[in-house]
């Protein structure tokens, strides 16, 4: 039973965003790269599935440049069996990534479940899961908080706006995209970190799967940083004075009332 987890390596959440001198991309030279936190839930879910199903093997896949190996090793240390890097250029967009992931998975054999995170925290596009499922011709349930795995189908609960839960049933094979809260991702033990360092990461080139740079559908231009937030203003005096001042400011300075 082949289980796949797709992960993305993203800059750490605390990274300071800088725009490259050409203005058309971000300068991430000094960034610390981590596994996308949503993908950690996906990896954890895959490993838990494996722990309950002894015939399952988990393959973790990441599409990107050389650096993504670091994220793959983190997933291996958590408990994935195999890792696969699809050599994608830095400027690959969601479409190309989805296609490359789908083709790599298809090349590995028949997938049982493909886990992903609901979105990546860098561009927050939330495109790859659904597009990849389409290329794989599988159903996909995203923003999943809880899933029960039957023999041939999956029952998944997904979170929708307002805190409500939608329940879905999907036939296997299918794609499940994890939401925060699906589980508590584990911290890798040291022996597993050491073992993960020695594992071979399989490299898949674009030629291997027949994907070309033509698949890039989006190009970026003219990045600007959002305007800096103005400091807050503390109002003095008792409550009636403060209230009057607040209304005056909202009307005269902010011009919102």
């Amino acid at each position: 039973m082949k289980i796949f987890v797709c992960i993305k390596q993203v800059p750490d959440t605390e990274t300071r965003i800088k725009i490259a001198s050409d203005g058309n991309r971000l300068d991430l030279a000094g960034a610390k790269w981590i596994m996308c936190p949503y993908d950690e839930f996906a990896v954890e879910e895959a490993i838990r599935f494996k722990e309950k199903n002894s015939d399952a093997t988990v393959t973790v896949i990441s599409a990107g440049p050389e650096r993504v190996k670091e994220a793959l090793r983190t997933a291996l240390a958590m408990g994935c069996d195999n890792a696969l890097q699809v050599a994608l250029p830095e400027n690959a967009d969601s479409f190309m990534t989805a296609k490359a992931l789908a083709k790599s998975i298809a090349a590995e054999g028949e997938a049982h479940i493909v886990f992903t995170g609901k979105q990546a925290i860098d561009d927050d596009a939330a495109q790859v899961t659904q597009a990849m499922a389409e290329f794989l011709d599988m159903p996909a349930v995203s923003v999943v908080l809880r899933a029960e795995y039957g023999a041939n189908q999956i029952q998944a609960e997904r979170e929708i706006e307002g805190g409500s839960i939608e329940k879905y049933e999907a036939p296997m094979p299918c794609v499940i995209a994890a939401q925060k809260g699906m589980n508590e991702p584990r911290y890798a033990s040291l022996p597993n970190i050491m073992k993960a360092k020695k594992k071979v990461i399989k490299l898949v080139s674009l030629a291997d799967i027949g994907v070309t740079a033509d698949e890039i559908k989006i190009s970026y231009s003219g990045f600007t940083l959002p305007p800096e937030r103005a400091g807050c203003k503390m109002l003095e005096g008792d409550v009636p004075t403060q209230s009057k001042e607040l209304v005056r400011l909202l009307r005269e300075e902010a011009k919102v009332i």
Partner: peptide
């Protein structure tokens, strides 16, 4: 921590922060 990865949950964030920042 190292063999069993068993520790108070609060420490996981601390470890991650130390690793990344």
């Amino acid at each position: 921590v190292q063999m069993e990865a068993a520790f108070p949950a609060e420490l996981q964030t601390v470890f991650k922060n130390l690793e990344n920042n």
